[in-house]
Amino acid sequence: MRRALITGITGQDGQYLAELLHSKNYKVFGLIKGQNNPKLEALQTELPFVELVSGDLQDLSSLVAALEQVQPDEVYNLGAISFVGLSFKQAELTANVTGLGVLRLLEAIRMVGGSQNNPIRFYQASSSEMFGKVRESPQVETTPFYPRSPYGCAKVFGHDITVNYRDSYGLFACSGILFNHESPRRGLEFVTRKVTNAVARIKLGLQDTLVLGDLEPRRDWGFAGDYVKAMWLMLQQDEPSDYVVATGRTHSVREFVEAAFRHAGIDDWERYVTQDERFFRPAEVDLLVGDATKARTELGWKPEVDFESLVAMMVDHDLKLEARKAGIQLP
């Protein structure tokens, strides 16, 4: 039975990846910071097969201890301060966790190593936000980075240090440059889930308006459950490499909003939506769209859930969630 350690186990990617690995007969471990994590109870209820291990991306010694305890075959680093808006307000924390956390984990892997015949394989969750103010479209693995947020800058460091440890120490280390990927498990602070949850509440008569920032940025949106399959495939290859993971199609925030209201049966969506400058970023990323040809060719990966189906999935989930919380019987 292979063993995998996942940081960021409470996030959407961590949960979908844990389910995927469990289905492939892995023993799955999740790294948890602190003793009173508010997401812990829900995680243990939904994913009882995950064994939790204490550790912190800000503390090298705890990472070494976790690796020595787990003795993993594979390590997936999904842990980060991942909300772009928050990174402007807590830039130093973002750099420390999202950037230097990668260095600490790589150093811990280098120190613990695994067996000579079975060295630890490492996956780093890189991000399309590294491209920022894009130099070319669509973006591929060799497109130059131009990050537009502290989060994007920290991800560039994490990506580059992963390449450096691969080149310098021969680690089996891969980075997946994942474009935006969503799901019903997405946090409510992210614009996609903020939209679908508000649409559900408006449909149920529990909310009157949806307040957003800029509606024009365009993103390449896919389903998180599809994207974790690419993560696993990267660590099954003979040689480590980096891969863009994307659908190759782009939609604006406005189109996401329209699709969500349309699926809920609300045509006049504009009467419910207002904009507030508080939700505009100091430096916006206008367009991100990826070319996943390398992942399709070398990994045999392709997205399965399209944009409309993704939006519908999220709206339906939030309708059931909010109806249950409010004691409303759905037809």
Rank of each mutant, 00 (worst) to 15 (best):
V195I: 14
D59S: 04
K194Y: 02
H317V: 05
F307R: 03
A312D: 06
L233G: 00
R218C: 09
M111S: 14
M1H: 06
F83P: 05
V273I: 13
D220G: 11
L330H: 14
G248Q: 13
V53C: 13
D167E: 12
G222I: 14
I202A: 07
N36R: 10
S115A: 08
R193F: 01
D316I: 11
R262I: 06
L100N: 12
D56R: 12
F122L: 02
G187N: 07
P138Q: 09
L210I: 03
F223G: 08
V163W: 08
K89N: 12
N164I: 11
R110I: 15
V112N: 11
E304K: 14
E216R: 15
D316Q: 12
E141F: 07
P147V: 11
Y76F: 12
P331M: 13
E129D: 15
E284Y: 11
N180V: 12
V195L: 03
N96E: 10
L288K: 14
L57T: 06
S23I: 02
A326L: 14
E136L: 07
S183E: 09
L5G: 06
S127G: 11
S252Q: 11
R166Y: 02
V315G: 02
D268G: 08
T94P: 05
F122E: 00
S175T: 05
D214T: 15
T7E: 03
M234S: 03
F190A: 01
S62W: 01
G113K: 13
T250R: 10
A259V: 05
Q329F: 06
G101I: 13
V163E: 08
G79P: 04
E189H: 11
E270F: 01
K39I: 06
G290Y: 02
R135P: 00
Y26F: 12
F279R: 01
L204G: 08
G132E: 03
L43V: 12
A66M: 04
L319M: 08
G158W: 04
L40E: 10
Q236E: 08
